[in-house]
Nucleic acid binder design. Structure first.
Length: 551
RNA sequence: GCGCUCAUAGCUCAACGGAUAGAGCACUUGACUACGGAUCAAGAGGUUGCAGGUUCGAAUCCUGCUGAGCGCACCA
């Protein structure tokens, strides 16, 4: 029996009590079933009686007693205790719990998928760093978190489009082009230009790829450096993302919004909604109607459209392409945009509490020898994605960046994460997987094939029970991560699961020792080990981390 | 000045408003003639920044304070 099934059973018990006239309450839509920290409290616990006590006008323990009586009649439930203020502690029999191992193995990669967000169309935009340089560490965090979130949302039934917004229009691109041009001509970097070896690399590539470029007039040259530089920089970003295992369904060009007239159309739509006005020769959007601290300019007095106008057009583009929810993942230095972005949605007539979500990610620090690392050879005073991959590898980088809440600033100690001796969370989880693969290899060597005749009731020790209980949590964890847009719960979960597996492994011999007989217990434990391997692999896949068979 | 985010073990981080706040690292002590010791077991380590409030119950929600990071353009 899974927690979800148990939850339904409790709901049914509430319904039955209501129908019997014993409880005058509305049946709750969700009944929380949790795994008690203290196993003396049973296999599962629910606080539903505490929640229903007030509306029912009865003491919590009395409500609990009504429900407990009904739950005790369910097959597989061996005990229902009432504890503390009114918790119901539920104990299942071993066979009912053990059956889960078969369910998981048979589901394979599908175990964990759920329908919590079934059919919801979500646009997930992340990284979106300016194509004027390599992706820096903040962008790397979003690549890890955003890509994982995309995978989790898909597993949760959502219809997700992942997207990278390329700011390929505007003054920063001109600055970038001028920096390339200066480099190609052996001139010093212009005021406020971009510095770093990558500028020289790209400039050189352009000079080699476009013969005669340096013979063109200054203005013609600049155009070549603009278009070619952009092309090369975007290609490099795409390569970096690809190598990082991060996939975007759409690379959306800001320039295309301007070129296609989408910006003008967007402003027209906002005007129809009544939030556009003119003042001091400029065109404004009255974002203060929806909580922004000042109104925003769409068209400057000189006739130029602003970046903000493109943002508005971009939001509407996402909407037009079917997104019910647009999720923006921004760095902490952009938190000032939250209100204005949400105001765009509201000004367009959307629900700013539902149709748009803005997530803010805090900064990442990297340490080596106890000192913060700030410098990158290739790009001056920033750490690039390639630096991170070179230092700690894709798996460790993705895992470490995705395992913490984006609300926390995080510090990654390069020495810890790369050390062969020091344990670290990535290897801890991966090792559990490799260990199970090893057991399976040994089983094959011994000629043991997991029997279809599975006796779940044999998985009865506390270690097996704990492991099964943890395995049962997985679909709920995935659903929660998706609903809350917080991938780190998957990592936290995997660490707990790996811990339970290692405990099981150390206390429960799976394969026969020496010339001992192969027993039903051998088979039952192989089912359990295989189920655990499946869940760890599924979880690591959601994080975009590999599941090695050997380490 | 205004606003956003954060503050949990020596360090890095967890904890749907729930029971005794948990892991890993580091530290102490044990366990390989058993499937991988990158593991396990035991120990030590906390006034959840401070002060109030809400309630059956607060690290979590509210208010104030302190401290840190960031942001407050007709820039992008």
């Amino acid at each position: 029996m899974t927690p979800a099934e148990l939850s339904q059973a409790v709901q049914a018990a509430v319904s039955a009590a209501v129908e019997a006239g014993e409880l005058a309450v509305a049946v709750p839509e969700h009944v929380t079933i949790e795994r008690p920290k203290n196993r003396d409290h049973g296999d599962y616990a629910t606080n539903v009686a505490l929640q229903l006590a007030k509306p029912a006008g009865k003491p919590p323990r009395a409500v609990a007693e009504l429900l407990a009586e009904r739950l005790r009649g369910i097959t597989g439930v061996t005990k229902v205790d009432i504890a503390g203020p009114g918790f119901m502690n539920i104990t299942l029999d071993a066979a009912t719990q053990g059956e889960l191992a078969r369910t998981i193995v048979e589901a394979g990669p599908a175990y964990g998928r759920n329908e919590a967000l079934k059919g919801l169309k979500i646009n997930l935009e992340f990284v979106s760093a300016n194509p004027t340089g390599p992706i820096h560490i903040g962008g790397v965090r979003w690549a890890a978190v955003g890509d994982s979130l995309g995978r989790i949302l898909k597993a949760t039934g959502a219809d997700v489009t992942t997207e990278y917004y390329l700011n390929d229009a505007g003054v920063q691109i001109t600055k970038f082009a001028k920096s390339l041009q200066a480099s190609a001509n052996g001139k010093p970097v212009p005021e406020d230009g971009y510095v770093g070896e990558y500028i020289a690399d790209i400039a050189k590539a352009i000079v080699e790829g476009v013969p005669g470029v340096l013979d063109l007039s200054e203005g013609e040259q600049l155009e070549v450096f603009r278009t070619e530089g952009l092309k090369l920089m975007v290609a490099e970003i795409q390569r970096s993302m690809e190598e990082f295992g991060t996939h975007f369904d759409v690379w959306f060009s800001e320039k295309s919004l301007h070129d296609s007239g989408a910006v003008e159309k967007a402003m027209e739509r906002l005007r129809e909604q009544g939030h556009v006005f003119e003042q001091d020769g400029a065109i404004w959007l009255r974002t203060t109607d929806f909580g922004d601290d000042k109104d925003r300019v769409l068209i400057k007095a000189d006739g130029e459209t602003t970046y903000f106008a493109a943002d508005a057009a971009y939001y509407l583009s996402k909407r037009d392409r079917g997104a019910e929810v647009s999720v923006y993942m921004l760095g902490a230095d952009h938190h000032g945009y939250v209100n204005r972005l949400k105001a765009i949605a509201a000004c367009a007539g959307d629900d700013m509490d539902r149709n748009i979500e803005v997530k803010i990610g805090q900064f990442v620090k990297m340490l080596r020898d106890g000192q913060e690392v700030r410098l990158s050879k290739r790009a001056g005073n920033i750490i690039t994605i390639d630096d991170v991959v070179e230092w700690i590898g894709v798996d460790a980088a993705r895992y470490m960046l995705a395992r913490s809440s984006t609300d926390s600033t995080i510090t990654i100690d390069i020495d810890l994460v790369t050390s062969q001796k020091a344990e670290n969370p990535v290897f801890y989880v991966q090792y559990a997987h490799a260990r199970m693969c090893s057991v399976q290899r040994n089983a094959v060597e011994k000629g043991i094939t997991r029997s279809a005749d599975f006796k779940p009731e044999l998985l009865a020790t506390e270690w097996e029970s704990n492991l099964l209980g943890e395995l049962a949590q997985f679909p709920g964890v995935v659903a929660k991560s998706g609903e809350w847009r917080e991938p780190h719960h998957v990592a936290t979960y995997l660490e707990k699961l790996a811990r339970e597996y290692h405990r099981f492994y150390d206390n429960c011999q799976i394969l026969p020792k020496g010339d001992e007989e192969v027993t039903d217990l051998t088979h039952a434990r192989l089912w359990l080990a295989d189920a655990t391997r499946t869940v760890i692999a599924n979880g690591l896949t959601l994080l975009g981390v590999t599941s090695p068979e050997r380490m």
